[in-house]
Nucleic acid binder design. Sequence first.
DNA 1: AACATTACCTGACTAAAGTCAGCTAATGAG
DNA 2: CTCATTAGCTGACTTTAGTCAGGTAATGTT
Lengths: 308, 308
Amino acid sequence: MSSSVDQVRSFNRIVTLRVGALDDSYLGRGRPLGQARLLSEIARDGGDMRLLRERLGLDSGYFSRLVQSLRKQGLITLKQHAGDRRRRDIALTQQGQAEHAAYEQLSDELAVSMIEPLNPSQQERLLAAMAEVESLLTAAAVTIGCERIGGDAAKFCLTQYFRELAERFEGGFDAARAQAEKDNSMAPPTGCFLVVRLFGRPIGCGGLRSLASGTGEIKRMWVAPEARGLGVARRLLAALEDKAVDLGMHAVRLDTNRALAQAQSLYRKAGYHAIERFNDNPYADFWFEKRLGGDPGQLPGKSSPISR
Amino acid sequence: MSSSVDQVRSFNRIVTLRVGALDDSYLGRGRPLGQARLLSEIARDGGDMRLLRERLGLDSGYFSRLVQSLRKQGLITLKQHAGDRRRRDIALTQQGQAEHAAYEQLSDELAVSMIEPLNPSQQERLLAAMAEVESLLTAAAVTIGCERIGGDAAKFCLTQYFRELAERFEGGFDAARAQAEKDNSMAPPTGCFLVVRLFGRPIGCGGLRSLASGTGEIKRMWVAPEARGLGVARRLLAALEDKAVDLGMHAVRLDTNRALAQAQSLYRKAGYHAIERFNDNPYADFWFEKRLGGDPGQLPGKSSPISR
DNA sequence: AACATTACCTGACTAAAGTCAGCTAATGAG
DNA sequence: CTCATTAGCTGACTTTAGTCAGGTAATGTT
């Protein structure tokens, strides 16, 4: 373990040394870092002040002044938001776009300088290793927590989930037919609704509700397309099972549609086995169950190594 | 190419996001970042103020105050340097060591949090990829430049080089017998002495001097043990050959001792072939030569892809 | 209609980080 | 011995980054 920590720390050291150079090169344009960062954030996906302030996590007064300084430099314009005259939309001026392009250029140059001295085969190895680190660090940054099913994040996830089902199911999907009224049962004290977040953004969800006789049902399991391939679904499923154990359930069931082949293979790998139809979900083609607490050495509520 | 840059930039983004969290956790100890960083640097390898100031690249006044603030907190002591009473040696007090250990703990915790959520096989992959990125980024950070052979860096490298030869040669090595008087010829305008640096520290060297009739001789090629395996020697050799081309040479020669097997294989891979003894170096067992400018499409002075 | 909340702005303040000029004491070079 | 240089210290100053307490206009809630 100690050698793992050493490896990570030595990686951190070298990477901050190299990547930290970006701040210096940004400062080279004679503008404080805060302004430069704000400019980049505006260029990335504009929007109104409130959104940006939230994303950057800045104090309202401080943020206001930062924006004003960019405006005085002629890099951005502020317009009243259509519909809500309190809000102000931010947009880059032509000069602002040019300035942003200059910062992009600096970032590109740093990136080039990091790979350029290497020969082609080394470059290839470096890029592959970077992709691997990136994907695994992203996976490790994922958090899973219980949230209100009526909350913004949960609603966002469910909307995306339903939209995807409508696309993928052969006969489409109608949320109303899917017994959506039962969703409220996915809440404490007899169930829960887990939201997966990556850097604060919701990227997945899954609900657990109580059936009769100590059995749980897992529903609404979804992972955003851009977050797939990171092992998120596996961890989410394990987290739901942990919750089920916490709630004293001795088994969990779920159903799935034939269009969702990867889901089926995930369930089988996680130890689920096919059972008879246990509900009247019109969209279900397969039904699975997994007995919980089979490992007597495992304390309830303690995460399994795979889930955390 | 553009996709390489994108990959590097996306890597940079994710890594700064994760590793940048270290600053926040350092601030959690109620001490400004500057002080925390200085403390870590002192703990790493102490030394006197001048050395540290240079390494951190800080203004003398600012640095002095930083040091005083740590002293007032009882974390370090200052003593007159033995021999030069202007200098002051810095040492951690017991309290300083404890405080440093606390910061180390924070770094360790960050490292653990970066790998802990992953399952064992993912952890293994992440650590391997980190090691790969680290080694290749280090390799890419290497710089090669012409320096005075009498300079500090050159002297340091040559000392290390001679020490290593003395260890590895069967009959030892005596620098005086090695025609060291010819070293001065490894300088402009008829030769050069290249120093390889990694983050400013000299980690290798190699000299080129002019023999009769447009032929160059490569001598004193050395790479520090801790920098081996990064392809430094290959790049250094290519850089020396570039220099030779710049100086109008049409071939370079070199000799080597039988104890240096890796050197021989490097030379062969780089296109050198064995020739008859061309000098009276008592330590030489093999002699090599490579014809230059064989590639007519290559402009003189332009680096080959392998060398930069 | 009354009241609370939200979005943005302003003024007053602070700490961190750093720059610059000049000072003293010790050391090194000629 | 003289003079320049070096190592460290001090005072005065600036910029950046931020906090906090209010203020105003628009919007939502009851």
